[in-house]
Amino acid sequence: MMIIDLLIGPFIEFEFMRRALVGCLALSFAAGPVGTFLMLRRMSLFGDAMAHAILPGAALGYLAFGLSLSAMTIGGLATGLLVVLLAGLVTRSTTLREDASIAGFYLISLALGVTIVSLKGSNVDLLRVLFGSILALDDAAMMLLAAMSTGTLLVLAFIFRPLVMECVDPSFLRSVSRAGGPAHLVFLALVVTTLVSGFNALGTLLSVGMMMLPAIAARFWAAELTGIIIAATLIGLISSLSGLILSFHTGLPSGPAIILVAGLSWLLSLALGPQGGLLLKLLPRRHLEA
């Protein structure tokens, strides 16, 4: 009885906890699959770069309209998509590789963002943009999170086959279809929308964690893409729930608590996971006949 009270009590008692939970769960549904593809494309650090890239837009929105969700979201989306598009253009038309051109644009973007915040705002404002305010989700924020997650999943399903082939065998894909390049670009846009929808809940920095940690943990639980995506989503959902409960009972800030739990589940997966986890490697096991 005690344990159930500890686990469910906060959500029954407090509406802000229920809202926080709904928001985090919605985010997990989109962040897991998107993060899985980032990891498999060896772009695990791309989310981090893009989280910085969306800062100036979000900051501008915040400074112009105050804590207005729509202004910050539109601003973040605009700068994020702009950076992705410019980097894509540079990669296609010069010898610079994608990671290098993204590094160039996100650094400019980040410097602009910090400048904007320091020109007009205080450090408190900056912290709010960076670390989010999950315990203050209003209706509009929740609707936005849910809509963005749903849209991300639908679009990802739509580009799934070209995106997978673009990863596995890009020259084959180019010989049967022109969809590879656009699919990649749309995918990068999905990363931006997921990050932007996450920064209200968790902040720009921690929303990257919700994208990457469940995905890299999931790699240790399944051998195939579908399984990894499902595992990543589940780990994200569980981390959201347990992180919120942890933060409620210990007084830790909720965003970091969720990411810490996600980080812990990655470490556990690393140790115990059946797909190449450390424990199985260290256990002396006899080899098979065939």
Partner: peptide, 16 residues
Amino acid sequence: IAYLPQSAALDRSFPI
């Protein structure tokens, strides 16, 4: 047209 690229061009670590 069917095209078989050099097999080295494949990313064999991708989990499909």
